[in-house]
């Protein structure tokens, strides 16, 4: 059973036990426009909550993707390197960025559920 949570900076996290799969929201990809490059964190990197973890670049500009929680990067989505446009076509599915081992589950308390996130972007 996974639960999906959202950050105010437009990242989503699908929580499965103590592992979170992280990506950017459909709203975020619409704001960015055509994605042409994604830079992912190294596997094994220890991320602190709110630290710049990945970079997503459109034709026009580069934007940081922040670590939504503290933890270690377990896996990254190699498909994004060869097909960055996946972020536009399937932001909240195939275009996940990385998986992180959640160090402190209490950090999840500050995140939004889908209803709260929808209200946040309205």
């Amino acid at each position: 059973m996974t639960t999906t949570l959202y950050t105010p900076d437009h990242e989503w996290l699908a929580i499965d036990g103590d592992v979170a799969t992280v990506g950017i929201t459909d709203y975020a990809q619409q704001q960015l426009g055509d994605v042409v490059f994604v830079e992912l964190p190294k596997i094994g990197r220890a991320l602190k909550k709110a630290e710049a973890a990945a970079v997503v670049e459109s034709v026009k500009a580069a934007s940081d993707v922040y670590a939504p929680v503290t933890g270690e990067v377990l896996e990254t989505n190699a498909e994004l390197a060869s097909e960055p446009a996946l972020v536009n076509s399937d932001a909240q599915g195939k275009a996940w960025f990385f998986k992180i081992k959640i160090a402190d589950k209490s950090e999840l308390g500050g995140l939004m559920d889908e209803a709260a996130y929808t209200a946040h972007t309205a």
Binding site: G33, D34, S58, V59, K60
Partner: peptide, 12 residues
Amino acid sequence: PVQYPAGVLKEH
């Protein structure tokens, strides 16, 4: 207008 609904890539 920085872009239209088609987007920068398609417009280019």
